[in-house]
Design a protein around this nucleic acid. Structure first.
Lengths: 208, 208
DNA sequence: AACCATACGGAGGCTGCCTCCGCTTCGCAA
DNA sequence: TTGCGAAGCGGAGGCAGCCTCCGTATGGTT
């Protein structure tokens, strides 16, 4: 994920695979991506694809040629951000305090989530469509998180029975409601409640 | 909420207010509600309204006459369930162990949430449209939860700095992702992680 | 029996989704 | 340079959903 350009190459994504893409195709691809990013940011994951094509001054057919599904477009327009995020995780592995490192990353993740409406829905969708390129994104993030989490657990900062998947879910859940609910102000508080709960082994065996 | 029939009366809802509703209107209202419940359960909150009208063997115009917005329909079709839930909360106030009572209710809440796709979105929407009848539902639930929570906190079973709103959010968040993600199997685990975290005062003042 | 407020229902205008295919353009090779 | 085939474009068209509007039907009342 640190090698830009080597990211999963699809139907028409730019990169080195096969022939390099005609100039016009390339141009349209870029315009679409730009328009899409803006649209998704403004209207969330269900922005109108026709509108995106219109903004990009491109036929709707062209949009579909490059991005056969809405997911493909969503994914493509978030790849950069996701890259950044996982790079950040790698960097944080050198942080002396593993617990703090984890927290830092989670907040960075929150930051991104807040800024990009649609990212959340995308990640949620990623779980359903097992095996799609989309789900790669989620995997990458989970691995990034996984490394940080493992370190934090080894340092005793986080209870050890929590899996990356679970943490991911919970954190993700918080973003999701915050977004759906339109109230992002509470993210910090909710996140910290969540983390408080994970710091030490559960008190007693938890009854139910 | 324990007085059925006295629930917020709207445009065309059955009840005692004003003239009692013409026979045909009443009939159609009921059919729509039935069809809607089925549709929302099967397809989630964005089931097709035209399909619902069709199933109810009623014109689309009639649907809109009774339920001017999708929210109105959603709300109406969940009112009964919400009633049940808040009654349950009241009953649980007599439970000897307040901590357990809270947990029990949360699981009941989970149960409902799992069974009714769409409930979650509805509640999320409820927050946006402040003051709508929809938001009453949320208020009612929060109050039900609030009473249980307060008791649990007084008994020392739950850390005292948590508000009903926050708990509601977090629990809600878990359902939401579980649903969006299609994976309801993890609800128990996630819920119990959440609760573990709330049992005792936070260890240390939590850094950030 | 007659009347009219109340309610019905669907046509119609709009937007969005996605597919299909005739036309355009690029870029390679001669 | 030119020519030509592959690659790409783009929008018409079919479908479905949203919601409004209004001519028509009907329940209930006098």
């Amino acid at each position: 994920m640190t090698t830009p350009g080597a990211v999963a190459a699809g139907t028409s994504e730019p990169g080195q695979p096969a022939r390099p893409m005609r100039a016009d195709a390339r141009r349209n691809y870029d315009r679409l991506l730009t328009a899409a990013a803006a649209a998704f940011a403004e209207h969330g994951a269900d922005a109108s694809l026709e509108e995106i094509a219109r903004q990009a001054r491109v036929g709707i057919g062209t949009l579909y040629r490059h991005f056969p599904t809405r997911s493909a477009l969503l994914e493509a327009s978030y790849l950069v951000q996701l890259d950044t995020l996982s790079d950040q995780a790698i960097a944080l592995l050198d942080e002396p305090d593993p617990g703090a490192a984890l927290v830092t990353w989670l907040y960075a993740f929150a930051e991104h989530n807040v800024r990009s409406r649609g990212l959340k829905e995308m990640l949620a969708a990623a779980v359903r469509e097992e095996g799609s390129r989309l789900s790669n994104c989620k995997t990458v993030l989970r691995e990034a998180l996984g490394a940080l989490l493992r370190r934090a657990q080894e340092a005793g900062a986080i209870r050890s029975d929590i899996t990356p998947n679970e943490l991911m879910r919970l954190v993700h859940a918080v973003f999701l409601t915050a977004d759906l609910t339109g109230d992002t102000g509470q993210i910090d508080r909710l996140l910290s409640l969540l983390l408080d709960g994970m710091r030490r082994p559960a008190p007693g065996a938890a009854e139910e």
